[in-house]
């Protein structure tokens, strides 16, 4: 489905908040080759700063139009309600006129769809509530619901459960895995990653250090990965 060959990614510091021109871009991914097949459920793990998000966004860009992204930045629109934020997932399915009218007066059918999706994600808030009134965990589930509402075959998630308790996280992960053919997800929880996904990829300092498809992975190896990085 997607193959990347000797990928090198640079993070341009000048594009961010850092406006100092002397700072040049830093490399975050080094010579990374990877093939992901249709139907695979892939977890990406690794210590912070390993380049997981950069890799994930690159994959999303490559799959443009065929994947739903649930990014760490969430990208919720604070002035809109829960309903409208989730409906944003369906924008591509409707004519712009439908979308504009829906912005002013929500359609019944869409409302009931969104409402049942919220129930599945254990989000028991009134749909008309603005998202800036929500807690971190609730916001995260709205962002997740929006990605699910895109109804794509491929789901790309960047730690979509980081603000949820472990039990809820595993329940929601099950929902996500069930609703998508292919799932690529950066996981915060190593245990969950290894138990729920059929393939685990580990990154460290921009290098692919582990791929469970090729090696059999034991827990010690992964724990060691996090420890060495923490020391360095």
């Amino acid at each position: 489905m997607i193959t990347i060959d000797n990928l090198n990614l640079h993070y341009d510091k000048t594009a961010g908040y850092n406006t100092d021109i002397k700072e040049t871009s830093t490399q975050v991914i080094f010579d990374l080759s990877l093939t992901i097949n249709e139907g695979e459920k892939v977890a990406i793990i690794g210590p912070s700063g390993a380049g997981k998000s950069s890799l994930l966004h690159h994959l999303y860009q490559e799959l443009q139009g065929n994947a739903a992204l649930c990014s760490q930045r969430q990208g919720l629109v604070d002035n809109l309600s829960i309903y409208h934020n989730i409906f944003m997932g369906a924008l591509a399915r409707h004519h712009w006129l439908f979308n504009l009218v829906n912005l002013i007066r929500p359609f019944k059918k869409e409302l009931s769809n969104v409402s049942s999706l919220c129930q599945q994600l254990e989000l028991d808030q009134p749909l008309a509530k603005k998202v800036d009134k929500l807690s971190g965990g609730q916001r995260q589930r709205v962002a997740l619901a929006r990605a699910l509402y895109q109804q794509q075959n491929i789901f790309i998630g960047d730690e979509p459960f980081s603000a949820l308790d472990p039990l809820m996280a595993s329940r929601l992960l099950e929902t996500v895995l069930k609703r998508h053919k292919t799932v690529i997800m950066v996981m915060h929880d190593r245990e969950l990653a290894m138990s729920a996904f059929d393939r685990v990829i580990a990154l460290d300092k921009g290098h692919l250090v582990l791929d469970s498809q090729q090696h059999s992975v034991d827990h010690q190896q992964i724990t060691a990965l996090y420890q060495t990085s923490a020391v360095a």
Binding site: R73, G75, L80, F87, A92, L100
Partner: peptide
């Protein structure tokens, strides 16, 4: 970023 890129520009602009 999170809106489906296949959505038309008017919808993306008003919602996003």
């Amino acid at each position: 970023e999170s809106i489906d890129s296949r959505a038309d520009i008017i919808s993306r602009f008003t919602y996003g």
